[in-house]
């Protein structure tokens, strides 16, 4: 028996919206640890890894590991029938071939249940090693989304260059080229600026840097890699899940784009770099 209740149903709705266009069918792995998924897009250049830990659910019961194969578009259709403030419960029998989604409104006077047929999906599971990345960038997820969207109107790929002081996004296309540089705003810098503006008697203006790019860079080695913007734009559908996005890059390795899901886990996207031949 698998049973998981999430009070903030909007989280599950948002998770599905962020992955349903990338992956068609996927196996959800339900274990005592939580509700997880790993799936690649049809071209096998990107991968999504989702983890919703059991401790983040309001109620969680998993007597035996269960794999639930679902069509994500159909799952999303069902979850769209839940209101944002509904509680969502997922239920499945160990040997059953359906999953039940139960929605309950905050007043508990409207209860709906939707049954969805499960499917057998033959997928490859990749072993992703725990790697120390050469560069880790943490920035506003809105800003990252804006950059990817803006650049995709100029070109098809983006080159991300991380140095200790900045992260630079570059693209080029038939109409021209574009460079966007976000400078690192360390905690130290922000505090300093705050003190200064307070002395100057300026109000709230200091938040320009702390609420603007808010770029944090952890660098072992400068890295420059090129990626297809189409996929990055798809990853950005997870923006509403978290204020910040974390990018991890290493030479000739897929980038990891991570959105934390408060108190529950994460959704991580991996994308293979474009390599010059």
């Amino acid at each position: 028996m698998f049973e998981a209740r999430i009070l903030q149903g909007s989280i599950l709705k948002k998770v599905l919206e962020s992955i349903k266009d990338l992956v068609t069918d996927a196996n959800f792995e339900c274990t005592a640890n939580g509700f997880a998924l790993q799936a690649m897009d049809s071209s096998h250049v990107s991968l999504v890894a989702l983890m919703l830990r059991s401790t983040g659910f309001d109620h969680y019961r998993c007597d035996r590991d269960v794999t639930m194969g679902m069509n994500l578009l159909n799952m999303s259709k069902m979850l769209k029938c839940a209101d944002n403030d509904d509680t969502i419960t997922m239920k499945a029998d160990d040997a059953g071939d359906v999953v039940t989604f139960m929605f309950e409104n905050p007043k508990a006077d409207k209860i709906s249940d939707f049954q969805m047929k499960l499917m057998d999906i033959d997928t490859e599971h990749l072993g992703i090693p725990d790697t120390e990345y050469e560069a880790t960038v943490k920035m506003s997820s809105n800003e990252f989304q804006r950059i990817c969207r803006d650049l995709s109107s100029i070109g098809d790929t983006v080159t991300i260059a991380v140095t200790k002081d900045s992260v630079k996004f570059t693209t080029s296309g038939d109409i021209g080229e574009a460079n966007i540089t976000c400078r690192r705003t360390s905690d130290g810098d922000m505090k300093e600026e705050k003190v200064k503006t307070e002395e100057d008697g300026e109000k709230v203006h200091n938040t320009k840097s702390s609420e603007g790019q808010n770029v944090d860079i952890d660098l072992q080695e400068p890295v420059t890699l090129t990626f297809a913007l189409r996929y990055l734009n798809s990853f950005c559908k997870a923006t509403s899940l978290c204020e910040n996005v974390r990018l991890q890059l290493s030479k000739e390795l897929p980038v990891v784009v991570q959105y934390l899901i408060e108190d529950m886990g994460y959704v991580r996207f991996y994308l293979a770099p474009k390599i010059e031949e």
């Binding site: 690649m40 071209s43 096998h44 250049v45 990107s46 991968l47 490859e124 599971h125 990749l126 072993g127 992703i128 090693p129 790929t157 090129t226 297809a228 390795l253 897929p254 991996y270 293979a272 770099p273 474009k274 390599i275 010059e276 031949e277």
Partner: peptide
């Protein structure tokens, strides 16, 4: 020309 390898060339099967 830039090529994009599949993820299997970076990560092995689990």
């Amino acid at each position: 020309v830039a090529s994009q390898n599949r993820l299997e060339s970076f990560f092995g099967a689990a």
